[in-house]
Amino acid sequence: MSDGSFQAAVKQEEAYLQKVHPTADDIPGCMSLFDDFLLCNVLGAQVKSLYRFGRMSECKEKMEDFKFCMSLKSMHPEQKRDAWIRRRAEWWAARRVGKSSENVWDIRHEPLSKWPPSLSDSMQDTDTIA
Score class of each variant (00 low, 15 high):
74 S>P: 04
57 S>N: 13
40 C>S: 09
3 D>K: 04
45 A>G: 03
73 K>S: 03
102 E>N: 04
67 K>I: 07
106 D>N: 12
99 K>W: 03
101 S>N: 03
24 A>E: 11
96 R>Q: 09
14 E>N: 02
118 S>E: 09
73 K>F: 02
108 R>F: 05
5 S>R: 07
57 S>D: 01
60 K>L: 08
59 C>P: 04
125 D>S: 14
58 E>H: 05
78 E>V: 13
100 S>G: 15
36 D>L: 14
79 Q>W: 00
26 D>L: 11
62 K>M: 13
19 K>H: 10
64 E>L: 13
29 G>T: 14
123 M>N: 07
93 A>I: 14
85 I>N: 04
16 Y>I: 10
90 E>R: 15
36 D>P: 01
94 A>L: 12
127 D>N: 14
122 S>I: 15
123 M>W: 09
34 F>W: 11
57 S>M: 08
92 W>V: 03
74 S>Y: 06
90 E>F: 00
8 A>E: 06
37 F>V: 09
10 V>F: 02
49 S>Y: 01
85 I>T: 06
43 L>S: 13
11 K>V: 01
2 S>V: 03
50 L>E: 01
18 Q>T: 12
84 W>V: 14
10 V>M: 00
40 C>M: 02
114 K>N: 15
90 E>T: 11
102 E>Q: 13
107 I>K: 14
29 G>V: 10
34 F>G: 01
120 S>V: 12
12 Q>N: 10
103 N>C: 12
5 S>Q: 10
3 D>E: 04
89 A>R: 05
100 S>Q: 03
3 D>L: 02
70 M>F: 01
55 R>D: 03
114 K>G: 02
97 V>F: 02
107 I>M: 13
114 K>W: 11
73 K>G: 01
24 A>D: 07
6 F>I: 03
18 Q>E: 11
116 P>L: 12
125 D>F: 14
126 T>W: 10
47 V>P: 02
3 D>M: 04
57 S>H: 04
7 Q>P: 00
65 D>C: 05
87 R>K: 15
31 M>Y: 02
26 D>Q: 07
81 R>W: 06
113 S>T: 15
93 A>E: 05
63 M>I: 09
29 G>K: 15
53 F>N: 11
92 W>S: 01
60 K>F: 00
38 L>Y: 04
13 E>P: 00
80 K>D: 00
61 E>I: 07
98 G>T: 11
15 A>Q: 07
110 E>W: 04
44 G>F: 01
36 D>K: 15
94 A>E: 02
64 E>R: 13
17 L>E: 06
95 R>D: 01
66 F>D: 00
77 P>F: 08
45 A>Q: 02
6 F>P: 00
7 Q>W: 05
115 W>G: 08
79 Q>H: 01
19 K>N: 14
91 W>F: 12
24 A>G: 05
5 S>T: 10
122 S>V: 09
18 Q>I: 05
12 Q>L: 10
70 M>G: 08
122 S>P: 01
36 D>G: 14
114 K>L: 10
84 W>R: 06
44 G>I: 03
57 S>E: 03
44 G>K: 07
106 D>H: 08
4 G>Y: 02
72 L>W: 04
98 G>L: 06
47 V>S: 08
56 M>D: 01
60 K>E: 05
27 I>C: 05
28 P>V: 15
65 D>Q: 11
50 L>Y: 10
84 W>D: 03
15 A>L: 04
50 L>R: 14
